[in-house]
Amino acid sequence: MSVWEMLFYILVFPGLLFLLAWTFFVFYFARKTLAYIHKRVGPHYNGPAGTLQTVWDVFKLLTKESITPKSADPYLFNIIPIITPLVAALPVILIPWSPAINGGRPILDTDYGVLGLVVLIGVEPFLLFLTGFGSHNKYSFLGGMRILAQMISMEAPFFLAALSPALLFGTMNLYEIMYSNNWLTTLILLPGAIIFIITMLGILEQPPFNIPDAEQEIVYGFYTEYAGTNYTLLKFAEFTEILVVSAAAVTLFFGGYRGLFFDSFWWLFLKIAILALIMVAIRASNPRLRLDQMLKFTWSWLTPLAILNLVWVIFAKLYILGV
């Protein structure tokens, strides 16, 4: 890998520029779709059909004053928004993005891809907890505690669901998992995929599991004290995480960038967009759950189901695929 190649990966694709473009896109996409369901117009004036609105919004936020509250821990408060997007962007190197890059393989082609993905995604909420902790605000702290509670209970089924394709194909290499996938295995893995998508909503703090940043209850939780650049960075991290986790779901369960007739990045993008659409639709039609209801749901339903799913995958491997 040459230096230029590496710089291209870091700065353009799938690095900084791509993630920025994705942030603008998904922000716009969510706003416009939500507006359509709300019977509103949504972004309208800037650019064709309001496409530039989110770009302006992000730059407007960057020009705003970054306030550090008197009572907050200044180092923790300001350093976490820098670390968070970096950690959120790390799993990008483990995912095979396009046949045109690195021969279709992930940039870091390792045999422990699934493990790395799950661990790097799982680190993120602890950083967000630290933002709540460093803000020294009651609401932020409550938000931080809620993140921890949600993370601990969501991670078990998340892990178990991500394990099912690895178990079925006998490898943790994401590239190999992606290429072993076919219509039959997709069907076998469907229960796992559904559990993965549900836990994904929890890990990304999307409705109905947006408990840690519930605005009506605890005033946006850990976001309460953030403004300006810091807020932008945290939001950027959030959207990056949405991209990474959806891409992980598509790679693990729905064949990544492989598609009908030809393989391309756009197939991956289409699948991610469909996942994003599902997320927006759930967000537009369902109220938030309570914390204790979420705990009950994950521990008494989701985790046992995820374990049962593993049993099903082993059964299918032995008797349907006959390996």
């Binding site: 369901i37 709300h38 019977k39 509103r40 409705p207 947006n210 519930a214 605005e215 009506q216 537009a284 039609s285 369902n286 109220p287 938030r288």
Partner: peptide, 16 residues
């Protein structure tokens, strides 16, 4: 009422 649970869609429909 739904707004209190974080769902704004219904409010928008009602306002419509």
């Amino acid at each position: 009422f739904f707004g209190t649970m974080g769902l704004q869609t219904f409010l928008m429909w009602c306002l419509d």
